[in-house]
């Protein structure tokens, strides 16, 4: 009997994939933004449109789609009150990768801020998920 919840159909695998896609996408967008910052015209820089000149940004787009599709799949089998708190993991993952992979220098003050945000998210994620389910 084929078990729907093993291997690649496992919802926990989808959840992990969704989280990793969100984080990887942010890193790619940052790489693309850095690469194109100098060609942004002063007047239209705020639109971010010049970022489209970078291949990294185009690589990030399918990751957004994948994170969305896997997330929809997750919602079919894992309750939001469990899935949503886990979906906040990028708030820890993205700064760590910014530091480790992109070499951003993060000051003590910024780490403190990131730690407070993560702590706060851990507190509110479950109740927010319960509220959002009824919204």
């Amino acid at each position: 009997m084929p078990n729907k919840s093993t291997g690649f159909a496992n919802p926990w695998f989808h959840l992990a994939l969704s989280v990793l896609c969100v984080a990887a996408c942010q890193l790619l967008l940052k790489l693309g933004a850095t690469e194109t910052a100098h060609i942004a015209s002063e007047r239209w820089a705020w639109t971010g449109l010049s970022g489209l000149a970078s291949l990294y940004v185009w690589l990030g787009l399918p990751l957004i789609m994948l994170s969305l599709l896997t997330w929809l799949q997750v919602l079919r089998s894992i309750p939001l009150s469990i899935a949503f708190p886990i979906s906040q993991v990028p708030h820890v993952l993205v700064p760590l990768c910014s530091w480790f992979l992109l070499g951003e220098s993060i000051t003590g003050l910024r780490w403190c801020g990131i730690a407070l945000i993560s702590l706060g998210l851990a507190l509110v994620a479950k109740p927010v998920a319960r509220l959002e389910e009824r919204l």
Binding site: L29, A33, T34, T36, W46, G48, L49, G51, V57
Partner: peptide, 8 residues
């Protein structure tokens, strides 16, 4: 796009 502009 706004996020991309900010990341620049």
């Amino acid at each position: 796009f706004l996020n991309l502009g900010l990341l620049q």
